[in-house]
C-alpha cells in the first residue's frame, strides 16, 4: 500500500512507524499502564471486531469502547469500559499508553492531535492508515495483516 498520508496535514512532529512486534514488546512490559481505545468501525467490520476481541483476550489489555464499539465487543464476551467520545478523558486516569483502533481516520487524526499538543502520554495507532499525529503508528496497510501479526505476537508472549 502506498506510503501516503490520508488527508495530508501539516505536522512538524510525525509518528514513528512501528511494526506489530514492537508494540507487542511494549504491551508485554507495560500492559497495566496501557489501554485500547476502540472506535465505531468495529460496528461495521466483523473481521476487525473478531480480531480486536482476540487481541484483548490474548493481551488482557483494558478497553475503552467509544462510538458504539462496545456492542460488538460485549457480544464477543469482552469486558469493556463503554463511553461516549466526550467522556474519554474521564477514563484515562492511571494509564499513559493509549492504543487506538477502529476509527474514521480523519477523526482519529483530530483526537491524536489534541493529545499530541496538550497531553503527555504515549499514543499508538494500529488502524489501517498511518496516523502522523500519533507518537507511534502502524504504516498504511490495506488488510488485517498487521493486527493479525500483533495478535500472534501476543500469543507468543
Amino acid at each position: 500500500m502506498k506510503e501516503k498520508i490520508f488527508n495530508p496535514e501539516f505536522q512538524v512532529e510525525k509518528a514513528r512507524k512501528i511494526g506489530p512486534e514492537t508494540l507487542a514488546r511494549i504491551l508485554k512490559k507495560r500492559k497495566s499502564k496501557s489501554v485500547l481505545i476502540t472506535g465505531g468501525k468495529l460496528l461495521e467490520d466483523e473481521i476487525l471486531a473478531d480480531l480486536i476481541a482476540e487481541l484483548v483476550k490474548k493481551s488482557g489489555i483494558k478497553v475503552i469502547a467509544t462510538g458504539g464499539s462496545s456492542k460488538p465487543l460485549i457480544e464477543r464476551g469482552i469486558n469493556v469500559n463503554t463511553c461516549l467520545l466526550s467522556h474519554i478523558t474521564e477514563k484515562l486516569t492511571d494509564v499513559n499508553i493509549l492504543i487506538f483502533v477502529g476509527f474514521e481516520p480523519y477523526l482519529l487524526s483530530r483526537l491524536l492531535s489534541n493529545i499530541k499538543h496538550f497531553l503527555n502520554v504515549l499514543t499508538v495507532s494500529i488502524d489501517f492508515y498511518y496516523q502522523p499525529n500519533a507518537k507511534l503508528s502502524f504504516p498504511n496497510c490495506d488488510n488485517y495483516g498487521l493486527i493479525e501479526t500483533l495478535v500472534s505476537c501476543l500469543s507468543d508472549c
Binding site: G40, G67, G68, K71, L84, L85, F103, E104, R110
Partner: peptide, 8 residues
C-alpha cells in the same frame, strides 16, 4: 461535542 457514529 463530536459523535463518531449514528449509534453514538
Amino acid at each position: 461535542v463530536v459523535a463518531e457514529t449514528k449509534e453514538e
